[in-house]
Write a protein that binds this DNA or RNA. Sequence first.
DNA 1: CCCTTAAGTAGCCAGTGTCAACAATGTATT
DNA 2: AATACATTGTTGACACTGGCTACTTAAGGG
Lengths: 205, 205
Amino acid sequence: MQDAPNRPYHHGDLRRAVIETALDMLREEKGWQFTLREVARRAGVSHAAPYKHFPDKAALLAEIAMIGFDRLRESLSAAKSEAPKTLRNEITPLARAYVAFGTNNPALYRLMFSAEEGKAVGMHLNERALAVFDVLLEILRRGQAAGSIRKRPIEGQAAAAWGLVHGMTMLAIDGLLVPEKVGSAPLDAALSTLVEGLGNPATQH
Amino acid sequence: MQDAPNRPYHHGDLRRAVIETALDMLREEKGWQFTLREVARRAGVSHAAPYKHFPDKAALLAEIAMIGFDRLRESLSAAKSEAPKTLRNEITPLARAYVAFGTNNPALYRLMFSAEEGKAVGMHLNERALAVFDVLLEILRRGQAAGSIRKRPIEGQAAAAWGLVHGMTMLAIDGLLVPEKVGSAPLDAALSTLVEGLGNPATQH
DNA sequence: CCCTTAAGTAGCCAGTGTCAACAATGTATT
DNA sequence: AATACATTGTTGACACTGGCTACTTAAGGG
């Protein structure tokens, strides 16, 4: 990662580089220490350079969080297109993709739920975040229409699904899904319980 | 909250006072800013006084987290003794008590899952934390024995229940359970989905 | 009366966000 | 082509915070 010694004075595309570097850092997670100076250091640039592209730290973080939502939505959409078996069983790969995103980008996922000063609410009402939620709502809607999912208010079912995957993601990130407590395949177990809860009992699983 | 002007030089029971103050601070949540100096300030002592009772910040935090587990277990046990209707429906008040604990002590709850350097794992394998989990396991066990809960590996069912309540708690703490996304009574909806997933379909709900 | 304990005071040290002043580079205008 | 200007970097510093550590001072017990 040594910079070329004769790297040009002007980086060329620092804005993007800063964001990329920051995303990398958020993938590593070591202790949620995210400092602007460290970003600059890793980007091979002076500690004040990022200020030419972002007014302050919060602005960079906000932008990155939004990118996080985009990527999460992409992951979910990708997972959705596979496994077209039962509509009802489309929930499982979707949930798996969700948790995988979180465990693969632990600090980024935390940032997206940052809770710093209740700022998270604003982010989650942004259209890019709502688009993620829509992937879930859409599946539930179609499942209900096809009769594979219980007829209940979808927002409530969405709450259950979201709550479960968010919880499992957080527990996984924190390394708390240890066999001593939750057995050897906690995610499998939790997801099948979820599917039983959402699914229409009149249909076979 | 003014200190008596002629407060004695020796506090008398500062250790306990520090812990109490810290617990109060963790109940307020404002931005997860927990500094030793602030604790000392609120306890009305000098910023170095706590060091006579705790080797460092981490030690204080660890002790407080353990107290958190004790209190959570107490809350759950209290909720369990009420509502003795169906065994299966004992899950709901238990879950409600869990989420209530989290929302009432937001920063404390976060601390208990702190994830700082994977330190959370150790805490959660401590007997005082396992005691919390046992409340849940016990109910599931009895429910299975009575036939009101599906016969499945309990650790898996526990994973589902824990994941869901943890997720809902976190979302609630972060203020993300907004009607726009999850409707007006997300917790109710999520819990009934959970109960359907755990419950034995042969039994009426 | 001394000596241990528990408190207070002062300060070090390391980081961090941010800003201001300067330098290099690219771009536009004359 | 030459010069002015705007962009985008660099360097250095400031303010502040927060953990932690000496050293000093009060209180209380043998």
